[in-house]
Design a protein around this nucleic acid. Structure first.
Length: 772
DNA sequence: GAGCACTGC
């Protein structure tokens, strides 16, 4: 976003001028992309050099994308493209569709897969003249989709990627003042609205694949509702799969729904007759049966998590080895944490006659498409991370999929042929036990980031913001509370200077604050690295069968008192090894993740420079670094109780050091720690932990803690009375203790003398009101 | 002594 914010006003001006220029020149335009003067060559676009060799190439869309790279668009090829365009289902309804769009400000389009809507709609709108008044913007839920679709459309329009048709994703703005069709991720559009509230540059916004309901999409809908009221000239088109179209239509005042047929093949669905307990065993049995009894065609199995995926592959292998005369079967696992070279295997061709069986997590549900799948086996489960705002903890658990998920999964069998889908659950279960649609992300994540963004967009009353899927009120209130603690909003519920600065960063509020404090304490260079390392999913790789090797490598990086410093250590060593990939492999570190860390670090550094923040290094003054870490996480502090056991300083809730923690490994037992993440799996675990000094906790978290100086050990004394401990010692599943939990939250706020004064935060007032 | 779905800025 550094690019956007730096170029923001400039770009706007360019676009206005450009619009004028375009108006003057419109006579010369040949609509429908018939101007053949601009012959595309691979070397013309920097995009090809930069992004294509990335590890994401194994994704199917990227493969298609790459296959265009070396093509010279010749006249005959262009003709062929136009023929292909005309053969798409959407072509048949083009005029009708344009009429509906002309007559309505908002239109919902239900487009089945492979209808051609994503590539054609933007071009139709351009041909119909919408690009004269602004850009035609189209959001995608994934970066890879934004890139590959933009490439396809620029080919179809016979233009160079980044000229008439461009895209914008994080780290990369491939657009120019010429751009009239712009594909982007929804997060980009959300950030743009921060700079340009009314989205003046756009004449049309298409929100594609809206049924996926990402956090950004959900927030954008609320914002767009307002923008549409202010800008009657703006058109909004929402595309969705069949399921949710009604919801969108209602949200936008009964906007008309337009249906485009798709081009998929029928999939026969077979449910179990009786309830299945062990879905791994059932899946193995089903795959073996398909393999032995059904004609050729590849198999795709859906499992909830990495471990189940691996176990299924293993058992399946064993089972097939026991069967004589069984034809060979190529069994391939895929999940996001699998290193990319292994992921790529699922796209490689197998020897003729050999059937392929891909065992996948829900990465294969939307993110990537394997061609040639005829049989789908669906366990009916997926793993979800669900945030509990009351205790500030994520739970990672296996849940049944929704009906929408189940249909998406079965649809994977009918992309190129008629298919078969075996569901490892009964039809009763499907109808009675599965939710119609999955719980939207906005209702199950920590919203502190979103709330900060909305605050900086000057949304006054967040509880009244028109969310399409309103998050639980508790969740919003807790986010406000967290922001208040961090100093991002003041007692009157207004954004502070610090808060405004925090909103500039594409980070969670604690991490943004860490960077800002670091800038003041002179260790921004170190914190930049740490924050970037925290922004990627996993650094250490622990392959099956090499557990001990990888553990011993990891130990070498560990800094006894801090996982954060351990991360810093890893990055610095990678850097001194010239950012080498082979160094990563040797040390069981995900190279892909590290490259992403470097990108994020550069982006954050860019934003800091642009904010004129001091970027200095503190050398080896690690205490300064730990102090910065403490400034961001003081609300997530824990006190030592036993070996590896801590209790949360504010709630008394027990939490265990995760065994991957450096503190665990090195047996160091500091009295106080702060943690990055609290997650419930088999137990409550804190992950990414740093030892802190009690005085720092009192300094940054003065609303919670003070140091009892009479104690010669220098331990902090919690100001919360004992009854807090009692209530929280019971259990964490406090759904029944909801009010008690809230009451304890309230008590903490009351305890600080300053908060009794008139300037009590609005949040606290709301809470009191709700309870009383 | 644990074990982590997937995106996105």
């Amino acid at each position: 976003m550094a690019l956007l914010s730096r170029k923001g006003p400039h770009l706007v001006r360019c676009h206005r001028e450009e619009r004028e220029r375009r108006k003057a020149q419109k006579k010369h335009w040949n609509l429908a992309g018939t101007n053949l003067g601009n012959i595309m060559g691979a070397e013309d676009c920097k995009k090809e050099d930069v992004e294509v060799p990335s590890e994401e190439c194994h994704y199917k869309s990227a493969q298609k994308y790459a296959s265009h790279v070396d093509d010279r668009v010749t006249q005959s090829k262009f003709k062929k493209i136009q023929e292909q365009r005309r053969s798409l289902p959407v072509f048949g309804v083009k005029q009708e569709l344009l009429n509906v769009i002309r007559d309505n400000q908002v239109v919902i389009i239900v487009g089945e897969t492979r209808s051609g809507k994503t590539t054609q709609l933007t071009q139709y709108l351009h041909e119909d003249g919408y690009s004269k008044y602004g850009i035609i913007g189209c959001t995608q839920p994934r970066r890879i989709a934004a890139m590959s679709v933009a490439k396809r459309v620029s080919d179809e329009m016979d233009s160079k990627l980044g000229d008439k048709v461009g895209y914008a994703i994080r780290f990369e703005d491939c657009t120019s003042p010429e751009t009239i069709i712009k594909y982007m991720t929804d997060g980009i559009l959300l950030r743009e609205s921060l700079r340009e509230g009314d989205l003046d540059r756009y004449s049309v916004i298409i929100m594609d694949e809206a049924h996926e309901c990402s956090l950004s999409t959900d927030v954008l809908f609320g914002l767009l509702k307002e923008v549409l009221r202010r800008r009657s000239d703006l058109k909004l088109i929402v595309t969705s799969a069949t399921m949710d179209s009604c919801k969108f239509s209602t949200f936008f005042g009964n906007a008309p729904t337009f249906k485009i047929p798709g081009r998929t093949y029928p999939v026969e669905i077979i449910h179990q007759k009786v309830h299945v307990d062990d879905y791994v065993a059932a899946a193995v049995k089903q795959v073996v049966q398909i393999h032995l009894q059904h004609p050729s065609g590849d198999i795709l199995v859906f499992m909830p998590g990495q471990e189940d995926t691996e176990v299924t592959c293993e058992v399946l292998n064993e089972r097939l080895n026991e069967i004589e005369r069984a034809l060979p079967l190529s069994i391939l696992p895929i999940y996001s944490q699998l290193p990319s070279d292994l992921q790529a295997k699922i796209f490689q061709r197998v020897t003729d006659g050999v059937r392929k069986c891909v065992v996948a997590t829900n990465i294969a549900e939307t993110s990537l498409t394997v061609d040639g799948i005829v049989y789908v086996v669906d366990s009916g489960y997926c793993k979800l991370k669900v945030y509990n705002p009351r205790i500030g903890m994520d739970a990672l658990q296996v849940y049944p999929v929704s009906q929408a998920n189940a249909n998406q999964r079965s649809g994977r069998a009918g992309r190129t042929n008629p298919g078969l889908c075996y569901r490892l659950y009964t039809q009763r279960q499907y109808l009675d036990e599965l939710l119609e649609a999955s719980v939207p992300e906005i209702q199950r994540t920590n919203l502190a980031n979103t709330v900060l963004l909305l605050k900086s967009l000057k949304v006054g009353d967040l509880l009244r913001f028109p969310f399409m899927d309103a998050p639980p009120q508790d969740n919003i209130l807790n986010s406000l509370y967290q922001l208040w603690m961090l100093g991002a909003i003041d007692n009157d519920d207004q954004l502070t200077g610090l808060g405004r600065q925090m909103a500039e960063f594409p980070l969670d509020p604690p991490q943004s604050k860490m960077l800002i404090v670091a800038s003041n304490l002179g260790c921004a260079s170190e914190i930049l690295t740490i924050v970037s390392m925290l922004s990627v999913p996993a650094i250490f790789y622990r392959p099956k069968g090499r557990e001990e090797d990888s553990d011993s490598k990891r130990e070498k990086f560990q800094v006894p008192e801090s996982d954060h410093l351990t991360y810093l250590n890893v990055y610095n060593q990678w850097k001194s090894n010239r950012y080498s990939s082979s160094w990563c492999t040797e040390n069981f570190i995900h190279a892909k993740a590290m490259r992403k860390v470097r990108e994020i670090r550069q982006q954050l550094e860019e934003i800091m420079k642009q904010q004129r923040m001091n970027i200095a290094s503190c050398g080896t003054e690690w205490d300064t670094v730990r102090k910065c870490i403490c400034s961001a996480y003081f609300h997530q502090a824990a006190r030592l109780k036993g070996i590896g056991e801590y209790v949360n300083c504010r709630t008394g809730m027990p939490c265990n050091l995760h065994s991957t923690s450096a503190l665990f490994e090195m047996g160091s037992t500091p009295d106080y720690v702060v943690y990055h993440e609290l997650i419930m799996t088999s137990k409550e675990y804190v992950k990414c932990v740093t030892a802190v000094d009690a005085h720092w906790l009192a300094e940054f978290g003065h609303m919670f803690f003070s140091v009892k100086e009479t104690d010669k050990l220098g331990k902090t004394k919690r100001q919360a009375p004992m009854n807090l401990d009692k209530s929280s010692n019971k259990s964490f599943d406090t759904s029944s203790d909801k009010d008690k939990e809230q009451a304890s939250g309230r008590k903490q706020a009351i305890l600080t003398p300053g908060l009794r004064e008139p300037g009590t935060p609005a949040l606290y007032r709301i809470k009191t009101k709700r309870i009383g």
